[in-house]
Design a protein around this nucleic acid. Structure first.
Lengths: 145, 145
DNA sequence: CTGACTGCAAAATCTTTGCAAAGAC
DNA sequence: GTCTTTGCAAAGATTTTGCAGTCAG
């Protein structure tokens, strides 16, 4: 896993390269994702940040804007749940897919090389230029069955 | 592919079994999905039905309610797009996955036996009781590249 | 007849936007 | 100083709900 200072530096470069500014709020969102392994909604992140840094002002809109920015820059990635809600995680780890418990919402990550290969083949077969791929297995986790 | 009269009968049985009523509106939604191969948003279905049957009253809420009913009953299935929007299709065909063009929205279906198998194995490995699984490959289709 | 279903409009969710004030460079 | 970013609240987009009238069985 990348060290935080390096990640931060990468983020700052990215901002500079796009004539964007480095702000406390943007850093906090990045740091949150780095320090909290797992998957969070924008609302989660907003609430937890406010709680953790009561003296820093941050608005929900800024969290949304920053998450979009991070996702576009491939620093974070999101998975969506049915029609409403999207959860974000740091997207720098090796690509992986998700198992999702439909009862408790628990998310488990997994990786399978064969699946990755087949996805590439399928895209090729249909002349798709693949930019992303996701696989979700929904069901009941061990505890919820 | 199942014949429409059979599908209709199955739907009617299902309604009866749950003490639900067979209505023109519910039938129209079912029929729409049967006759129009492809993937549609509730809004699409609503608009096209109004257009096709100007003399029948149907509200958007009813379309939503019927689609939920059909999905719960495994007669229809849906895939979601990012944060907003969900598209429905008749869910009776053999299970399949989707390639989605991020530019034009085109959807291509595919099926791969190996993927299916691996999904089962992964679920088993994590003691998940799998109820559903989806795979989406996002990219640019042949025309949009 | 009775209870479920419908359309409508209002409410609920989640996300984005407009704008004046604040902050980065 | 200039130009971007921020928080706020208002607006949007999509979906759900409450309700009184309507309809299937």
């Amino acid at each position: 896993m990348i060290e935080y200072p390096l990640l931060l530096e990468e983020f700052q470069h990215l901002l500079k390269a796009n004539a964007l500014k480095f702000t406390k709020q943007r850093e906090l969102v990045l740091k949150f994702l780095y320090e909290n392994e797992g998957h969070y909604t924008p609302e989660d992140i907003y609430t937890l940040l406010k709680q953790q840094y009561p003296n820093i002002n941050i608005g929900i809109a800024t969290v949304y804007r920053t998450l979009s920015l991070l996702e576009t820059s491939h620093i974070a990635s999101s998975i969506s749940f049915g029609v409403q809600g999207k959860k974000y995680e740091l997207g720098l780890k090796e690509h992986h897919d998700h198992l999702i418990c439909s009862k408790c919402g628990k998310i488990i990550e997994f990786y399978d090389e064969t699946i990755e290969q087949i996805q590439e083949e399928v895209a090729k077969k249909f002349n798709f230029k693949m930019t992303d791929h996701t696989m979700k297995i929904v069901g009941l986790c061990e505890n919820c069955q």
